[in-house]
Write a protein that binds this DNA or RNA. Sequence first.
DNA 1: CAGTGGTCTAGACCACTGA
DNA 2: CAGTGGTCTAGACCACTGA
Lengths: 240, 240
Amino acid sequence: MKQPLHERIRSDYEGRILSGALLPGARLPTEQELMRHYDCSRMTVNKALSALSAAGLIDRRKRAGTFVARPRVHSMVLDVPDLEQEVVQRGQAYRYALLRREVRLPDPESAEEVSLAGAGQLLVLEGVHHADGVPLATEQRLISLSAVPDTGAVDFEDASPGAWLLKHVPWTQAETRIAAVAADRDTAHALTVAPGAPCLLIERRTWRGEEGITLVRQQFVGSAYDLIATFGPAKAPPGA
Amino acid sequence: MKQPLHERIRSDYEGRILSGALLPGARLPTEQELMRHYDCSRMTVNKALSALSAAGLIDRRKRAGTFVARPRVHSMVLDVPDLEQEVVQRGQAYRYALLRREVRLPDPESAEEVSLAGAGQLLVLEGVHHADGVPLATEQRLISLSAVPDTGAVDFEDASPGAWLLKHVPWTQAETRIAAVAADRDTAHALTVAPGAPCLLIERRTWRGEEGITLVRQQFVGSAYDLIATFGPAKAPPGA
DNA sequence: CAGTGGTCTAGACCACTGA
DNA sequence: CAGTGGTCTAGACCACTGA
């Protein structure tokens, strides 16, 4: 075994957390218990747990113990925006209008749908995000029911699916594609802009471990929305 | 002093690296030397250096020693694209055409220019990025000459300023603003698209520590460019 | 082959805080 | 107040690799 022991301990628990075997809030063994289980010194256990803590996967509290961290909302380096929260922070009223809801098998011709659904079905949600009653963005979302079975029972008539997912499903990997497109007729109608108006298109795929969670395609009114991403060690850029 | 010693060692060297007092490639003291200097055990020194290594600020090589890492090109979590590299990877020929170059004081009415320039002057560069001879994006860039004095001597007639900066200036903090806009007359002309065509606008501010380095505003032909950002622990998304 | 970092041990004292 | 994690010590053996 060339892998260091502290790496093995770290990846053991990383795997259990990412796979969902250890749910948020679950308690991990104490350092003493891990020392006995892995037959090693406390420093080695501590190194593994410190790394998990630095990665945000666990929270450690003196006397209380070590716990699986709550799903990261804004703890990732890129500020993946939760649209609802953002609108509310601007002091506007947020509303999500669900237009369509469907559970179906993936389209066998769509590689991305097949890859997302795995062996199961897809929940398809279409709706429009509003700020102060004005349409801000359209959203088409696919959710893997095998990855997130709970979603089937949730009522999305009112709540934004993105906000629900952020709160309930930990994700570890995301890919975002951003482009500027001209609004087609349907989108222009839904957003009450002129056809051809510039829109910001955001497509995001999210994974937990190796398993796809959701694929979402949002189209924003160009004149009404900016995407801002900040990254680096500090909380806010120095200029702010 | 409530700050742990390993934190103090870490922040001592972090500060020297970010401030430029220790340049890329410079050698740090060995663990033995640091043990003597801070009068502590090797594990404490090792914890501090391991953290700097995990953060990508230093490289450690057995027998050789510990060195300040080269500026991060793609090591940040968000894949800030280097346009030149991206175009070349697509198998296209890259060219940057410089349209304007000027050294001037910041406009006192522009808070962002004043904040960027500090006490010094600004280098202003305007140009167009081409892929296979076709205009891909316009670029307006401001560089703080007090933060990057070397820039004054560089010939940007041919080389993209972004690629030069990525290679030569380590940055620690960035803020990116992304929006969809309609091309105005000048931009449409430079990009040879119709006025009003959707364009992806990217504005990026970059800092090294507290000091502003550059502010760049790029406008991409919407139909020709997608921005893709991947983040998470793995190198590539599982679906790819 | 000698110096460097990587890892690990078997302890220790302490601060914190919830049972 | 007892159990937990945070930090630190003073060693050790090893793998690696450049002088």
